[in-house]
Computed example of a mutant assay.
Amino acid sequence: MALLHRAELRPSKLDLLTAWLPGRPWFAGTAGVAVTRVATFRFDDPAGEVGIETLLVRAGDGPVLQVPLTYRSAPLAGADRWLVGTTEHSVLGPRWVYDACADPVYPPALAAALFAGGGQAEEYFEVDGRREARQPNMTVTGGRVGDGRPPVLGDSHEVVDGDPTLIRTHPVELAVVRRPGSADAPSDACLTGAWPGQATPLVLAYAVPR
C-alpha cells in the first residue's frame, strides 16, 4: 500500500525529468521540450521509508519512456551518478529523487512483481483522518514463475544504463525496458502494462538467470 499526500513539489517531478532525461543514452524525443505524463504506478517499500514510483512519460512527439524513480528523505550514499534531482515536498520536506534502477530498494520490489505475480501497490490519500483510494491510471500485471517465490537477491548490484537498463545481481539479471514496445520478454518472469491509448499490454521489465 502506498500512502500519498496532497502536496506540491518544487520543482515538480516532470520539471526534474525535463532536465535529466536528454542526458540518458536511451532518451528519445525532443530535448528541451517539457516532459508530459502518460501514466504511473508504484511498488511498496516494505520498510515504508522510500517512495518507489514508475512514470511513463513522453518528450514532445517522442515515444513513451519508462522512468522508475525513488524518493528519499536523505541522500543515498554513493549514488550521486544516479541522482535525478532534489525537490521540496510541501508536506515531507526535501526529497532526493533517484533513478530507481540504482537504488537498493528497487530490485527486490521489481523481482517480486516479475516472479511472484505482484502488481502495482494500492494507492491512498489520507483526507481528514480517512483514507481515500486513488484509482490506478494503468494496469500492471506481474509474472509467476515456479512456486511464485521471488529469488533472494544479493546485497550489491551493477547497473548498465541503456535500453533495456540491466540490473545485474545474483542470481538473476533484471531488465527495465525504457521504451515499452521495443522488446519482448525472453522468459515468463516479466511485467507488462497497459494504459489509456495503449490497450495491448507491453513488456515493461523481465528477468533472466545469470
Rank of each mutant, 00 (worst) to 15 (best):
P171R: 02
G117F: 05
V159M: 06
Q135S: 15
P136A: 10
P180T: 12
V152G: 10
G142R: 12
A183M: 13
R179D: 02
I167L: 09
D155P: 06
D147M: 03
H157I: 09
E126Q: 02
V203M: 02
Q198K: 07
P186G: 05
T141L: 14
T192D: 08
P180S: 07
R168N: 13
G154L: 07
V159L: 08
G119R: 00
R179V: 14
T169K: 05
A185L: 01
G197Q: 03
G117Q: 02
G143I: 00
D163M: 10
R179P: 01
D147K: 02
V145Y: 12
A121G: 06
A194G: 13
E122K: 11
W195T: 03
D161T: 13
T165F: 11
Y124E: 10
G162E: 10
S182H: 03
R144M: 13
V172P: 01
T169F: 10
H170G: 09
P164C: 04
Y206M: 00
E132N: 04
D147R: 01
V176Q: 05
R168T: 07
V145P: 08
D163F: 04
W195L: 10
R131G: 04
P150A: 04
P150F: 11
T192N: 09
G118S: 13
N137V: 14
H157T: 13
P151I: 07
D184L: 12
E173Q: 15
G197F: 11
A207C: 04
E132L: 15
R149T: 12
W195G: 03
H170Q: 13
Y124H: 14
G117L: 02
V172A: 01
G193W: 04
D163T: 08
V172F: 03
A194P: 09
L153W: 04
Q135I: 07
A194L: 06
A121W: 10
R179S: 10
R168M: 11
G146K: 05
S156L: 14
V208C: 00
G181E: 14
P136Y: 06
N137H: 10
P180C: 11
Q135V: 15
G143S: 11
A205T: 06
G162Y: 06
E122R: 09
T139N: 00
A116F: 03
E122I: 01
E158S: 15
D161M: 15
R131A: 14
D155A: 12
C190K: 13
A133W: 04
V203I: 04
S156G: 05
R149F: 11
T139A: 13
P171G: 09
A194F: 02
T139D: 07
F125M: 11
Q135T: 13
G129H: 11
T169W: 07
Q120S: 14
Q198P: 05
D128I: 14
H157P: 08
N137W: 01
V208F: 00
R178T: 05
T200Q: 12
D163W: 06
D163S: 15
P186Q: 01
D188S: 11
G162P: 13
Q135R: 10
L202E: 13
R130I: 02
A175H: 15
G181R: 15
C190G: 08
D147T: 06
R144Q: 13
G143N: 07
G193A: 04
R178C: 04
E123T: 05
P180I: 08
D155S: 07
R179I: 15
D184G: 07
N137I: 08
G154A: 13
G197Y: 03
F125W: 08
V177W: 02
T165N: 11
S156P: 07
L166W: 14
I167H: 06
R144H: 10
V177T: 14
L166P: 03
